[in-house]
Design a protein around this nucleic acid. Structure first.
Length: 223
DNA sequence: CCATTAAGATACT
DNA sequence: AGTATCTTAATGG
């Protein structure tokens, strides 16, 4: 069974680099990824990376979605951005470069599969393979842009917009319009409070955007 | 049944 | 928008 997994990975990575449209990875790089990458599976809601951990490898999402959160001392959490298949984590790249402990934590949003590239390899490849360097830089800048988006939606107080974006994203990642989530959980991800989220959800419901059930929010197809 | 907990309501900041 | 408090409703023993 281990062998079939190994054969499989080449196909997955190939597929991945094709979906990345621009110059796909060189065959030599694909081989290297195949050889040195460590694949792991996670169930939904599993903790993938705890804050404070020393990071020694770069995660590359093969399948599923991961949410990257920032935790404030004791009380608060805040969603920074999501990682989808084919993406890698900017915060981790920055940790790797400074050889620092993780300042974020990562949770599996859905069941997912992640490929970990040891940090020495990832350094090596940046020098060796243009497509890899390209991939890292591009990914870094994309994540950075998402972060800026998160920052100014927080700064400019658009909680209503943040909530509806969150619902849209979750519907996308879970591939359903029926989200099993509590108002409390939503509040935590947005670093808000349950009552406020309930109020907003109720207003969404009155606008005919959603329907509220216990432990479940149904998205109706109106933007 | 009862205990637990999600969610609604109200009022104040 | 956020907090505090109380009430109501759903769920699972």
């Amino acid at each position: 069974m281990a062998t079939s997994k190994c054969l499989n990975i080449q196909a997955i990575i190939l597929n991945l680099s094709q979906t990345l449209e621009e110059s796909s990875f060189e065959p030599a790089l694909l081989e290297a990824i195949n050889r040195d990458g460590i694949r792991k599976r996670y169930k939904a809601d599993a903790v993938i990376l705890e804050a404070g951990t020393l990071v020694n490898s770069l995660p590359l999402v093969l399948e599923g979605a991961i949410r990257v959160m920032r935790r404030d001392e004791e009380d608060g959490e805040l969603l920074l951005y999501y990682l989808e298949a084919g993406e890698t984590c900017a915060a981790t790249i920055s940790c790797c470069m400074g050889n620092q402990r993780s300042n974020i934590h990562a949770i599996a949003e859905t069941d997912c599969e992640v490929l970990f590239i040891p940090i020495q390899r990832m350094d090596e490849w940046v020098a060796k393979y243009p497509s890899w360097r390209n991939f890292i830089f591009r990914s870094f800048s994309e994540r950075f842009d998402e972060l800026l988006g998160a920052v100014d939606s927080v700064a400019f107080g658009g909680l209503e917009e943040r909530l509806s974006n969150l619902l849209r994203d979750k519907a996308l990642f879970h591939n359903t319009n029926s989200l099993s989530i509590t108002h409390q959980q939503l509040a935590e991800e947005l670093h808000s409070s349950r009552v406020v989220i309930s109020r907003l959800l109720k207003s969404f419901e009155q606008l005919g955007k959603i329907r509220i059930h216990r432990n479940r929010i149904e998205l109706l197809n109106k933007s």
